[in-house]
Design a protein around this nucleic acid. Sequence first.
DNA 1: TGGAATGTTCGGCT
DNA 2: AAGCCGAACATTCC
Length: 256
Amino acid sequence: MPELPEVETVVRTLAPRLVGRRIHAVILKTRKAWAASAAKLRGRRIQRVERYGKYILLHLDRGVGAIHLGMTGKLMAGAAPGAYTRAVLVLDQGRVVFDDVRQFGSVRWLKRPPDGLGPDALSILPDEFVTRMAQRRGRIKALLLNQAFVRGIGNIYADESLFRARIHPLAPANRLSKDRALRLHRCIVEVLSEAVASGGSSISDYVDADGRPGWFQFQHRVYQRTGEPCVACGAKIRRILVAQRSTHYCPRCQRQ
DNA sequence: TGGAATGTTCGGCT
DNA sequence: AAGCCGAACATTCC
């Protein structure tokens, strides 16, 4: 579940319970390579909690805790550990439980926030978005998924944004007119903001730090609606593969 | 039973 | 050299 809106929702529900807390102990139930790094969180005080693309950053008195939810990661305040719990941060007041069925997520201690990521999808300015797009020849859908280009967009919101902007997912980025690029930027901000306001999309079992699901999945217009009628024109939604990911679009509304 | 699922990374090829 | 592809990671669900 974890794209920008889901991570943002987790951060908003988590932050009030974490800021000012000290991490007394780190319990690890994983053999993943990040475990050694995660152990360094012990003893640190959490000064600020921030979303950084799809990362949850705990700004500490020394360094940062960087949590990535991968595909199935969940971060829950005060929850009981279960079968898929990979890490528990024991605080001076309460605890945070990190569950992750597929284990693509991670909990790490870093000297500084991760580098190599592009500007945040919700804060990049229209002009910069247009300029960066003009420098890329790749397919627009693949580019939106590329965190080095913009950070925060994943498979759901890439499809939903392209649908709203009426842009074909295979369109080469640098071949879009300035108007269409601006429209795409506007639609990305719109879709992400609406999704944040809805608490994200719960497509399998996503919940925020308080265990509450989001409801933006009821607003999806193309994502996982293959074969269903387009809400705008009635044409059947099509599914193709782009960058090895399922890509859903309306063949009539989104022309090449 | 095989394929697909909210993600990232790496190696190889052009 | 950017960009593409396939594979890998691990587990569940239908």
